[in-house]
Design a protein around this nucleic acid. Structure first.
Lengths: 99, 99
DNA sequence: TTTTCATATGAATGAAATTTAATATGAACT
DNA sequence: AGTTCATATTAAATTTCATTCATATGAAAA
């Protein structure tokens, strides 16, 4: 009886999405790039808290950021957002489709 | 500027899947019903710990159990597992497809 | 170069989730 | 009824996570 190797890596990626703020960030960014201030306004989250969550999303490769003057623009990488259906997130191990 | 209402309910459901043991249980059960002992063997998880995780999956409606003699059979409900593609989990708010 | 704006980082706290250990339940067998 | 097998439950210990607060960084403006 070989012991099945479960998928901790996939669970880790799902954990990144299993938070309302981070999920909200992704949902928001799926409609296009935004800077941190815009995300704060839209999601109604404190600056520092949002920044922490953005770091977690960035570390997981689910968002990427570029500086534009004083502000930082965040967006979902092409490889992550399904541009055809528009409403899916590719985690590598699995794909999450909304609605 | 209306404040966007994020989706805590969906995050909660994703949280249930964001654990290697629970994800392993679901993956295992997607190939058919199993009793707890079989899940223990396949996933190499302690009895009590597995039971806790099964309770969380049950509370979330992602698995259901029926007694058969001394053992408990666990399975993924029809409504949750996508019977057509075979490899998807429906959470209500979103759908997770594997490989 | 000092100030201001936009964002990031680190430490501290508290809450929630996971894990372990011990015990309980419920069905079948003797 | 008492014992055993399979699983669940409870409580306690531990770990992880989210949040807050204070401070730092980096770019532009004065």
């Amino acid at each position: 009886m070989k012991t099945k190797i479960i998928s901790p890596a996939c669970a880790d990626k799902l954990k990144v999405l299993s938070d309302p703020t981070r999920l909200g960030v992704l949902e928001t960014l799926m409609s296009g790039p935004k800077n941190v201030g815009e995300l704060m306004d839209e999601l109604d989250v404190e600056q520092s808290l949002l920044s922490h969550h953005l770091a977690i999303l960035r570390d997981a490769g689910l968002v990427e950021s570029t500086r534009e003057g004083k502000t930082m623009i965040y967006q979902v990488p092409e490889s992550v957002s399904d541009s055809t259906t528009g409403k899916a997130i590719h985690l590598g191990c699995c794909k999450i489709s909304f609605d």
